[in-house]
Amino acid sequence: MRNLFALIAGGLFGAGLFISGMTDTAKVQGWLDVFGNWDPTLAFVMGGAILPMAVAWQLTRNRRPALGGDFPTPPEPKVGRNLVIGSVMFGMGWGLAGLCPGPSLASLSYGGIGHWVFAAAMVAGMLVAVPFKRRLTAMA
């Protein structure tokens, strides 16, 4: 059951990314490029996605997940060094290619070789992140 609903959730996510145009790197870069031909589409996507999610968070109150277990507890509201360094690195890569993890996966079937190269590098980066994060934490 968990796997079935994960498949459904992933399917909705992938369909949304596809329909919204967020696998089009020009649209993402167009949104980031405030000095170029600015494209506001991404803001509509974000707004559209946040609405059902905000309702979902309200529904988690005094309830449990339908398939058991507990809802994720909110992390300590602390903006640490890892969050800042990681987000800046992510943003740089996002700007360079116009791809982030979700759309990168959603576009694998039709984006062509470039999308596979990006995804492979992203997976490699996720492996590199393990020792990198350990070092950052040790330095703190």
Binding site: G86, M92, W94, P101, S104
Partner: peptide, 13 residues
């Protein structure tokens, strides 16, 4: 370069 940055950055953050 972009893929590496996205992979490392998202996991650190």
């Amino acid at each position: 370069a972009a893929g590496l940055l996205v992979g490392v950055g998202t996991r650190i953050a």
